[in-house]
């Protein structure tokens, strides 16, 4: 019988919940990278053991993790996200931010 793996990103680490196909009994992993915030983890639809994870915290910034064994082990991959500078805006989105929140899109909903 097939099973289910639930990848959970939290404010203080990633967790992997596993069950067989009955989905009655669940195993909860220890925290992966405890203390770090995980905005998102997602597996490849063609290789379930390949998982990408977005790891960050306020001090160290953004880090990227990759697993090739379904989350048993992790490898730090690239975190160089260089944006293109556009002539019309000196620093891209920074210019937008200084104009304030014209959308008034509620109060804090991060993420």
């Amino acid at each position: 019988m097939s099973g289910v793996r639930v990848l959970v990103g939290t404010r203080k680490g990633a967790f992997i919940l596993t069950s067989d196909g009955t989905r009655q009994d669940w195993q909860v992993s220890a925290p992966q990278f405890g203390g770090w915030q995980f905005y998102h983890l997602k597996g490849s639809p063609v290789d379930a053991n390949r998982i990408y994870a977005s790891q960050s915290n306020d001090w160290f910034g953004q880090t990227m993790q990759r697993s090739s064994d379904g989350g048993k082990t992790w490898e730090t991959v690239g975190n160089k996200f260089s944006t293109t500078a556009f002539p019309a805006r000196t620093s891209g989105t920074t210019a937008r931010r200084t104009r304030g929140n014209s959308s008034a899109c509620g109060i804090s909903s991060r993420p």
């Binding site: 099973g3 289910v4 959970v8 404010r11």
Partner: peptide, 12 residues
């Protein structure tokens, strides 16, 4: 758990 930010499910 700590506050949950994301959930992704893999059927394996």
């Amino acid at each position: 758990l700590p506050p949950v930010v994301s959930i992704e499910v893999q059927t394996i």
